[in-house]
Design a protein around this nucleic acid. Structure first.
Lengths: 246, 246
DNA sequence: GGACACCGTTGATCGACGTCAACCACAAAA
DNA sequence: TTTTGTGGTTGACGTCGATCAACGGTGTCC
């Protein structure tokens, strides 16, 4: 009695139960039974080309998105032209939560490489999370995690020095690559120095200099966007010594 | 057939339907019918003395809190002793959302003056928001608003100069006092210069100097913690001129 | 292959904010 | 009233990171 899988504009219908990102994504920790219900929830997949936006500040809020492949940055713009990267997102992470409060997105989400997301219509999500307890709880956890993450960034921006910020950034990237089955020590950054700087509240030259310094000190090897961490505990130590900061 | 209102340790049982903070708090926008159900949800009130903590980082997460009276700060601590204020909260605002993700609080919530909160047991909240659509939606909005707010702070910390940060802070306070029926132009800050500095990523001396500068320029009148805004549009102008920043 | 962007690196200089220190204002206690 | 403590202000000086500028590497489009 099951209807045929509908063909969507952008290709295959998403399926959480078949997806190898379950452990990183919204369905984490849900029962197999609940998982099957998620397949109803998640709409089409959508492909976004590098530098294209998934949504822009001011767009009406209709759905949240799970990153199926690729990576994104989110940024906010001030009237005067200044902008700030508020986060980098990788596979399995959820985009668009900022839109719920005002029913309008409050930042831009831009693909750092050709990417693909699963579209999760928000109305449906609320509806289903009234029925599926596991989904409700997971969704709340995802939102809460975003809040905790943001507090970490505030800590970083408010009280760390340039090299500490970059060290924290690299360790965070390493940890997230590891969670995705990649090497903890060797990875490829998808963002420019300018974007890293914007995220860390630094100018690109400062980011570049900090990279060079780390290289001199044998902490990492840097070749453009290719990073190899040579001394992870050295990086961690940088974070612990209270080095005056601001 | 209604049971008598139970007497709680800390005094009166909270009642959303009777509360004059509805428009600022979790129940905002909910129907009268739904509102009555909220009275079941909200547990006892709890009083917190100035400088006492409502919860501390590491405490098991059991409830979220709505501020009934008074005000709070939240802060995070790093191992090395550095700490950072992540927010100031006023009446009607919700505390504790950081705890959902790890089932443990990730920051400290400390009363800036003698205060009172309504305790909202989290299990009950999830349960009831499966039944009451309006509650579910409002709760999601509250979480999302927190995320948007944090992005604003990241913007401030990452790309504004000292005086811009303080101007943004004052305008934000003014706006929140106004929403609570107080004067937009004249108010009493409950936090020290050190706490403001920690929140804004500045040292207390820098905060103090910025206040003095504003006073010289006739933008505000400052007498210790008592602030009078003399030229709000002047403060706003400070934010728009892109003044180089970092 | 050559030309052109774009991105990244490095150096020299400057300025905003941190640091250190002294002093002042106000409130609670003696 | 004086005392003591906490919080706030102001000045002199130092430093970290921004700014300005030149140059080098890498990839893409003719």
């Amino acid at each position: 009695m099951k209807a045929a899988v509908p063909i969507t504009v952008n290709g295959l219908k998403a399926s959480c139960s078949q997806c190898n990102l379950v452990e990183l994504c919204l369905p984490f920790g849900m029962s197999e039974h609940d998982l099957n219900r998620l397949d109803e929830l998640v709409g089409a997949r959508r492909k976004i080309k590098r530098q294209q936006s998934l949504y822009r500040a001011g767009d009406p809020f209709e759905a949240i998105y799970a990153i199926r492949a690729g990576s994104f940055k989110t940024d906010v713009l001030l009237e005067d032209g200044r902008d700030q990267v508020t986060g980098f997102q990788m596979t399995g992470e959820i985009l668009g939560l900022d839109g719920i409060s005002a029913e309008t997105h409050s930042c831009n989400a831009i693909a750092l490489e050709d990417s693909e997301v699963c579209v999760i219509p928000y109305g449906k999500l609320e509806e289903m999370s009234r029925e599926v307890e596991g989904l409700q709880h997971q969704f709340h956890k995802v939102m809460s995690r975003e809040i905790v993450r943001d507090h970490g960034v505030m800590m970083l921006l408010g009280s760390m020095r340039a090299e500490e910020r970059l060290a924290a950034f690299l360790l965070n990237m390493s940890q997230r690559f590891t969670a995705r089955g990649f090497s903890p020590a060797e990875f490829h950054l998808r963002m420019t120095r300018d974007e890293i700087g914007s995220y860390l509240g630094l100018k690109l030259e400062t980011v570049s200099r900090a990279f060079s310094r780390f290289q001199e000190d044998g902490l990492v090897s840097v070749q453009q966007k290719h990073i190899r961490i040579l001394n992870a505990s050295g990086l961690k130590r940088l974070l612990q010594h209270q080095s005056g900061g601001r």
